[in-house]
C-alpha cells in the first residue's frame, strides 16, 4: 500500500488576528506554524495503513522554503520521505496549486494507491484542490470522511451528515479527504524526531501561474462589540434567564 498525504503549512492562530501592513496576508511575526487540523488525521491514517499493510508513506506540500519544517515534523510521525514544491511564498490560487500537485504526483515512480487530504485548509478554505486533483488524475474521490477501511482493493468511507452516517466506497487507486475525528493523531517519539532529520525531502521549484481567483486584500471580520449581559451568579440568575427565554420566544 503506497500512500501519499498532501499537507499545507499554516500559521497557528489564536483567537485574534492581525494583518500585514499591505492587508494581503495574516501577520505571522508572532505566530508559530503547523499544518491544518484535519491533515494531522490524514498523516495518522497513512502511518496506520503502512503499519498494517506494509508499503510506503510519502508527504507532499506546496509552500515556502520554510514548509520543510512541517514536513520534518510529520516525517517524525512515520512517513518515509517528503516532497516540497517550493513557491515564492505567495498564496497560490486553487487551480495553480492543484496543477502543481498533479505534476508532482505524475512525476513520481510510485503510483500511489491512496492519496489523502485534510477536508479543508485552516486558512484559505477553498474546498476544491482535492477534487481538481482527482479529476486530473482520473481517480474517484470520497470526501469529508470520519471512518475509513481498506480491503480487497476498495476503500470504504463514512461521512457524518446531520444525525446520520453516509456510507461510500471506491475502488483503489482513490483519493480520500478526512476530517478531525477519524483517529487520534499520535505525538512524534524521540527516535522519530531524530530519524526525521535524516529522511529525504526532495525540494522542487514550482512554477507559478497567473491566478484566476485573484486575491486583492484581506479584512478582519468585525468583532461583535457587544459583550454579554451578565444575568447573575449561579442558580439565582435562573429567573432572569427565564425572562430572556420568554422575550426571544423560546418560552411561551
Amino acid at each position: 500500500m503506497d500512500v501519499l498525504v498532501c499537507l499545507k503549512r499554516v500559521p497557528i492562530a489564536g483567537g485574534t488576528f492581525l494583518l500585514t501592513p499591505d492587508n494581503r496576508d495574516v501577520e505571522t511575526k508572532h505566530l508559530g506554524f503547523g499544518i491544518s487540523p484535519h491533515e494531522e488525521n490524514a498523516v495518522e491514517a497513512g502511518v496506520q495503513l503502512v503499519e498494517q499493510m506494509g508499503g510506503s508513506l510519502t508527504l507532499l506540500t506546496l509552500g515556502p522554503t520554510d514548509a520543510e519544517e512541517q514536513l520534518r515534523s510529520q516525517l517524525a510521525i512515520g512517513a518515509s520521505r517528503a516532497i516540497l514544491l517550493e513557491t515564492d511564498g505567495q498564496d497560490w490560487d486553487p487551480q495553480a496549486t492543484a496543477a502543481a500537485l498533479v505534476n508532482a504526483i505524475n512525476a513520481e515512480e510510485t503510483k500511489f494507491d491512496l492519496i489523502l487530504f485534510g477536508a479543508e485548509s485552516a486558512d484559505s478554505a477553498g474546498y476544491q484542490i482535492h477534487i481538481r486533483v482527482a479529476h486530473a488524475l482520473n481517480r474517484p474521490i470520497i470526501t469529508n470522511i470520519k471512518a475509513m477501511t481498506i480491503s480487497d482493493g476498495t476503500v470504504k468511507g463514512e461521512r457524518v451528515v446531520g444525525s446520520e452516517r453516509e456510507l461510500y466506497e471506491a475502488p483503489l487507486p482513490a483519493i480520500v479527504t478526512v476530517r478531525d475525528g477519524l483517529n487520534i493523531p499520535r505525538y512524534p517519539s524521540v527516535p522519530g524526531r531524530i530519524q526525521s532529520r535524516k529522511k529525504p525531502v526532495d525540494i522542487k521549484k514550482a512554477e507559478p501561474r497567473v491566478p484566476k481567483l485573484e486575491k486583492l486584500h484581506l479584512t478582519l471580520a468585525p468583532s461583535k462589540s457587544k459583550s454579554a449581559e451578565i444575568l447573575g451568579q449561579g442558580e439565582a440568575a435562573v429567573p432572569a434567564l427565564i425572562e430572556v427565554l420568554k422575550q426571544i420566544g423560546v418560552l411561551a
Binding site: K226, E229, I230, L231, Q233, G234, A237, V238, L241, I242
Partner: peptide, 25 residues
C-alpha cells in the same frame, strides 16, 4: 472567550444552574 460573542451569561456551575433552569421551566 465565548462571552465576547454571547448576548447573555450566567456565571456559575452548569451542574447547578441547568437543573434549576429545568425545574423553573
Amino acid at each position: 472567550p465565548i462571552l465576547a460573542y454571547a448576548d447573555y451569561a450566567i456565571i456559575g456551575d452548569l451542574h447547578k444552574v441547568i437543573p434549576a433552569l429545568t425545574a423553573a421551566i
